[in-house]
Design a protein around this nucleic acid. Structure first.
Lengths: 344, 344
DNA sequence: GTGAAAGCGCTAACAC
DNA sequence: GTGTTAGCGCTTTCAC
């Protein structure tokens, strides 16, 4: 049983032990300024002996800022965000920043609480995938207080800050067009709640493609709801049991893809309808047929956002940047099932 | 253009604005001690007006601790850990704790750096999925310095601290037994590097079951390697091309499951061998056949660890606890493919 | 119910 | 090259 040495050594302790002033210890610890090889050695020894570690609070209180950035997203357990999160972390750590992260769970109140905590803990900047209805006046106040922000995945209306977004509309249009080109005229679209930015953008892209192809819009083929609701089965059923059911399905995000694929396996019409999902996911290539997707690049999104933020934090005050990431269609089979009007 | 009010208001500012002393403001902010309704009102108004927010560093410098816990895991992008992470976060937030998290990437140096940062930022406690070869002397020093720790998924040899682990050995034995019962005698095992605790435990469970059934161990059927290596295809090939190839495959973790299933889809012998994976994963039920797994419960692991840690942090000093979570076999089809010696 | 004084551990500014 | 002084913003202690 070692007796726990409750009190951490301070710089003064180290200074006393090595016969120099606290300031010299500070110089050694931070590698700033000149220190003679001799005293350096003495101080280092004392540091090791006492197990000294710099007290970050004191340092930060003095300096007013921290090498910490905050990440707020909808749910770390969602693969899209967990990959993004890891990318942010890697950039942060490479520049000696630490990452605070939390899931807003799409709850504006929780989201605000998180942002306040991060901010009052001196996060130098924040990367935010804003929850729907995030209070923008509040965010603006934070921005004005000098807290840099980069928004990922979704913008906040009325907030001037850097954004890194995917080309949701263009990607969804390309996906829909892909299905149309294979003879589909009745294409169902399942997206998240209409209040979610990405969902609405993707729906718009879907509609763009239908319009371009001169296909009538049938609202009964469109479902906009959170995919984790228990009601999903009923929603899907309603669409599938139309007199004129869809011959192709477009899933608006990876959560919907999973729910729909599960449904199709159990209750799906045979032969299976064509299927295309927005956002790639693990095992999409292992399913049979492989799932055709409009792939986003969450790692790139996280990396770019982190780099942008860290530049801002270090004083870059160039005009607000809006980065749009291209999406990429990956054909694996499910989206290449021909529709009834296929003429090829 | 609102001019950014660079400096946040302090308690003194609020005190001055409302004509009281800083200490009274402190009482109001922290809801401690008695304050007359009148002054309370005045102080609150000043706080809102000035946009005051308590400076956590100063508070923490004074108090010596923070309502923050740190989480160190292998990789947040791994679904097992991302689910665990979310569970920890929910428990933490519910008790007004913030979560610092970082991925060790199985690198003991990175891991140590992360733990040091967390600790010197005053994390009240840490939840750690220790990287292999984590320096235990270092951890012990941290523990002695008063930083509570709970280890999840893996223990650290020689460290006395709470652990929350899955029944890796028992689960793997049950899985192997399941395959044996269906007539398999040649069962391949693909696990992570032998240096990884869970990998070795699961291998031991696999061997337990073979021994119990009186089946000879064939080391050529055992692969222990990190599943993200580029060499996986070659490793799998070697096993598959044995004169007497396996009729069943046991994947030692979800990363290996994905790699193996991808291989089997493309190059697998037909009919497919039986397949069983340790740890459940998304879409395991949507694949055809559904993938039989030994399911762990990462959310429960995270929740229990967080609750345990927060109790420790609040002064609970009962003896070290070791929680073992049962695993659960979920039969979905892939593990029920009969082997050549099936007699049922 | 409220205030004054001191100090947490560090570093910026300046002196030597 | 190294030391001194002062103070970051808060809370603890104790006095009123």
């Amino acid at each position: 049983m070692t007796s726990p040495q409750r009190a951490r050594a301070t710089m003064s302790d180290v200074a006393a032990a090595s016969g120099v002033s606290p300031k010299t210890v500070s110089r050694v610890v931070n590698g700033v300024g000149y220190v003679s090889a001799e005293t350096l050695e003495a101080v280092r020894t004392a540091i090791d002996q006492l197990g000294f570690r710099r007290n970050e609070f004191a340092r930060q209180l003095r300096q007013g800022t921290t090498a910490t950035i905050g990440l707020v997203l909808e749910d770390v357990a969602d693969p899209f965000y967990s990959v993004l999160s890891r990318a942010v972390e890697d950039v942060a750590l490479a520049q000696d920043y630490l990452l605070l992260s939390a899931s807003s769970a799409e709850d504006p109140t929780r989201s605000r609480r998180i942002i306040e905590s991060f901010s009052s803990r001196g996060a130098a900047g924040l990367i935010i995938a804003p929850a729907t209805d995030t209070d923008s006046a509040f965010l603006r106040a934070e921005l004005d207080a000098g807290c840099s922000m980069v928004f990922v995945d979704r913008p906040v209306p009325g907030i001037r800050a850097d954004t890194v977004l995917a080309d949701n509309r263009g990607g969804a249009a390309a996906g829909t067009q892909h299905l149309i080109a294979r003879g589909h005229r009745r294409i169902a679209f399942f997206g998240d709640s209409a209040s979610v930015y990405t969902a609405t953008e993707r729906l718009a892209g879907y509609r763009d493609a239908l319009t371009t192809a001169g296909i009538e819009h049938d609202d009964r083929l469109v479902v906009m709801a959170p995919p984790h609701a228990d009601a999903t089965a009923a929603l899907i059923d309603t669409v599938q049991k139309l007199d004129d059911p869809p011959t192709a399905i477009f899933a608006g995000n990876n959560r919907w893809s999973v729910v729909l694929l599960r449904y199709l396996k159990e209750h799906g019409p045979r032969p299976l309808p064509a299927f295309l999902g927005f956002d790639d996911f693990e095992l999409s290539d292992v399913l049979d047929p492989g799932i055709t997707v409009i792939a986003q690049d969450p790692a790139a999104m996280g990396q770019l956002a982190a780099e942008l933020l860290l530049r801002r934090v270090s004083g870059d005050d160039r005009p607000t940047q809006h980065i749009q990431l291209e999406t990429r269609l990956i054909a694996r089979g499910s989206g290449e099932i021909a529709g009834p009007f296929n003429s090829s």
